[in-house]
């Protein structure tokens, strides 16, 4: 990108609305990965989805609940049992990640700074559509690495929109950056098939639809779903009863983001799951 003509100094430039463009221009962010060119004769290795984790999110009466297990794996080795995969991006937005942590955390960092940079330079909050699209673009830029077999990230994005009417919004993505708005729930990661089954069942034939659940009921379903996923998926930590490690649960509501304290999760777990 060309430097603005008003620049007197390399530290100076005109207004750039997009933070990742600014970072690339300054050489602080890796360039968008190019798709690998197939070598003549050698068939290209098929991309294997390896988002080893379970993330789920659903709307309930108090906003959107986002939950993630705590296990991080490399192949069949558990490397960390307190990983934080549910990340706060701003006061009303959460990005929950399944995939390669290095890439995912970098994306979250770029995203967090992008939203703030936009608000500060443009003097208004970025719209929800703009935020959703910003994440989509980061995924698209990363797709070359995905095709090379490294750096796949499949996130969920939850936020609270105040325009045109106040409501919780929930999006899930594929590795290429396509965004889908979820009406009721979304799940991603290797343990997600089981979770999707449970959430579908609860939403249609459970005691009440997900959107009508109270906070404790919602937490209980999230814990049960993650525990179910961990039964068949080795990459999902579920609830570690011995080590007393609980999933991370955050709620996005009109007032902002609440991280549920471990004591509260433990209490719901003891009463309704264990």
């Amino acid at each position: 990108m060309e430097r603005s003509p008003v620049a007197f100094d390399q530290n100076f430039s005109g207004a750039v609305g997009d933070f990742s463009v600014l970072l690339r221009r300054k050489g602080l962010l890796a360039p968008a990965a190019a798709n690998p060119v197939p070598q003549g004769g050698t068939p290209q290795k098929m991309w294997q989805p390896t988002e080893a984790t379970t993330i789920l999110a659903f709307k309930f009466s108090g906003g959107v609940l986002v939950a993630g297990d705590r296990r991080a794996t490399a192949g069949n080795t558990v490397v960390y049992d307190r990983a934080d995969k549910v990340l706060e991006i701003d006061r009303h937005s959460i990005m929950a990640i399944a995939g390669v942590p290095a890439t995912a955390w970098e994306m979250a960092r770029v995203l967090e700074h992008s939203f703030q940079y936009f608000r500060r330079t443009q003097l208004q909050e970025m719209s929800v559509d703009g935020k959703v699209r910003a994440l989509s673009k980061l995924l698209r830029d990363n797709f070359g690495f995905v095709m090379q077999g490294v750096g796949v990230v499949v996130p969920i994005f939850a936020t609270y929109d105040s325009h045109p009417k106040p409501e919780a919004r929930l999006y899930f993505y594929d590795a290429m950056g396509a965004q889908f708005e979820a009406t009721d729930y979304a799940a991603t990661g290797s343990g997600s098939p089981a979770v999707r089954g449970i959430l579908f069942y609860e939403n249609n034939w459970g005691a009440k639809p997900l959107q009508e659940l109270g906070e404790d009921e919602a937490v209980s379903i999230a814990l049960r779903a993650l525990d179910t996923a961990s039964q068949s998926d080795t990459a999902t930590g579920g609830v570690d009863r011995g080590g007393k490690i609980y999933p991370l649960i955050k709620i996005v509501s009109r007032d902002g983001i609440t991280t549920l304290p471990e004591s509260k999760i433990a209490a719901v777990f003891k009463e309704t799951v264990a």
Partner: peptide, 18 residues
């Protein structure tokens, strides 16, 4: 003012990011 403001935000944001 706008140019100087942008420059200040840019510098602070890239420093805070890296």
């Amino acid at each position: 003012i706008e140019r100087l403001r942008m420059a200040a935000i840019e510098l602070a944001s890239t420093e805070g990011f890296t």
